[in-house]
Write a protein that binds this DNA or RNA. Sequence first.
DNA 1: GATCCTCGAGTTCC
DNA 2: CTCGAGGATC
Length: 731
Amino acid sequence: MTAGHGSSQGLPALERVLWLREEIARHDYLYYVLDAPQIPDAAYDALLRELGELEAQHPDWIIPESPTQRVGGKASAEFGTVIHTEPMLSLANAFTDDEVIAFDRRVREAIGENAPEYAAELKFDGLAVALRYEAGTLVQAATRGDGSAGEDVTANVRTIRAVPLRLTVPQEVAPLVLEVRGEVLMLRADFDRLNARQRSLGEREFVNPRNAAAGSLRQLDPGITASRPLRFFAYGIGQVDPATGTSLPQTHLAMLNWLVTLGLPVGSHRRAIATPAGLLEFWRETLSQRHLFPYEIDGVVYKLNRRDWQTRAGWLARAPRWAIAHKFPAEEMLTVLQDITVQVGRTGAITPVAKLRPVFVGGVTVSNATLHNEDEILRKNLWIGDTVIVRRAGDVIPEVLRSLQQSRPADARPFVMPSHCPVCGSSVEREADGAIWRCVGGLFCGAQRRQALLHFAQRRALDIEGLGEKVVDQLVERGLVKTPADLFRLTQSELIPIFRAKNPAEESRAATNLLQAIQAAKQTRLERFVFALGIRHVGQEVARILAMEYGDLDPMIGEDWNNLIVRKTIIQKDNQRRRNHGEALQAVPLEGIGTEIMDSLGRFFAEPHNLGVIAALRASGVQWPVQQPVALSSVQSIGQTGPSAAGGETIFEPLPLQALTIVITGRLPTLGRDQAADMARAAGAKVASSVSKRTSWVLAGEDAGSKLPRAIELGVPIIDESEFLRRINHG
DNA sequence: GATCCTCGAGTTCC
DNA sequence: CTCGAGGATC
């Protein structure tokens, strides 16, 4: 009879707790993995409640893997960073049958096998995450981030009931380390219910299940995540310990089956396919069933099934060569073209814009779409009032494809290009055979002045942080700013009313910040300044060439541009002759800058108003380091025809990327794209903006666009950032 | 004059 | 990202 209180009552209770935990995990498995629940939700909730009550009586029995511990955890100030030991790669995309057939051909060539088998599965439209299990217990969850490092979302992922906190194998035989990769998403039905709840609470609704899932997973308070109905589906593995690695299933599909046995949900629509025709058939079949799946999918994925062949096929920059995502076509929707308005751009270009009855397409609501120019409207035969087909081209920009002529209403009317600028009333003109109408108002036109200011302040120009559309509109409206030079005369008291806020301290802080940003922008570089001026045909590239060749602004202003046009034309004609005769060529001034651009420069610098603005800017303290003019044109390729540099007193150390032309695409893991471009140029390379057969190689990062398939098509080598850095450092 | 390669300019939604 | 147009070359 000694103190039996704890043990006599405790032991059966402990057994009950252990049994409840196992039972709940079993029902989670039945529900989320096998999609075959055996008990009603109410019975499941009763089990969970009973467990909670027992644990409340015996807090020392609580373990982190208990299903009651999914909810809760405390909110954090920010997410930690997780480095992915094995980078989380993205997949190359295919949009057409031909691209899939080309993929199959490349795979067969790469592995030297004629009839490889593929695993075909769904491409979930959610967020990629990596789950790390150690000895069978979930220890960490991370988002993909940029592929090499993501955010630590462990507390949030633990609340997702489809994610097992323990793998369903005895601890002794569980893998030491197993990183499971998959997608977190929200079912369409759950999404609808969540939005209904948000509506009734007066909270903001989510635009689509993907955004809802992303927003829910990135909550700093895991309690909120717990209240959101998230799901998880595994589709692959990342890091594993060496022992597990050697005993993994041999094929991708077998590995997915193995993940199921570990208690992980895997999409059920998957199969082995032997031929490219079979892949295309799978795609068509899945597309036709798209709306039967309870979640959103944006395509299907094909992977080489045998894992040893995957290794043999290898990796290409940041995507595996042995897998491809075959995307579904952009969704097309019908809506009404309610009106066509026009916008006035920086150069006065009048651009017609379609005003659409808002339509939900490709995951967002679209109400505007550019129509490019008048000819485009005529070509597509669009009338105001027409029913039109809209889609999101690529993955972002809305596009009006065509109108349904048969349903044109009686009161439909054609678009008429306005004869006068809608903003300033100046006349609107179009060059002889140009496609674009322009307002001739120049800086008299408010729209052009506004755009000129925005251009001046933009990141690639003087980079004035905080000077965006709203502020510029206010400044122009209040008559505080007419030219860029006026920006540097602004005072604190003038700015305060612009940042009208409830709290006066906020106002003055915002004003101070803007003044500081303007102050900081005074110290700039010549190429930025020349670009910022907004001279017609002078973009970043031309501004760079000019800055290099002239070293300072005054020689540009002083240049006799009309004369240079004539001189350059003569030299080019003469070079033409020399080329035919095999003679050495003369250096051409300002390579890449022809008659039109020079004419534009000449007219800009001849305008007293422009010179006045430039003078005022410099007087306000805008300055740049003056460089030694570099005669770019004299060192470029023309000298190579003969053995010219024979005598050789001056031996130039060749730069590591000398004479290469490279193209940069996608998001690089550590470098900014501009940063990488500067490094490449410093190393002697030319950085081009599009891929051609003359491109030496393409530096590709995450989410590379159309340049990557183009590079593959042209057989241009593709490298990633680390290889890029190696080449820069070691030549 | 034709062709290929680039760059400039404009753009949507959150 | 896409289209239009400038520039170089044959």
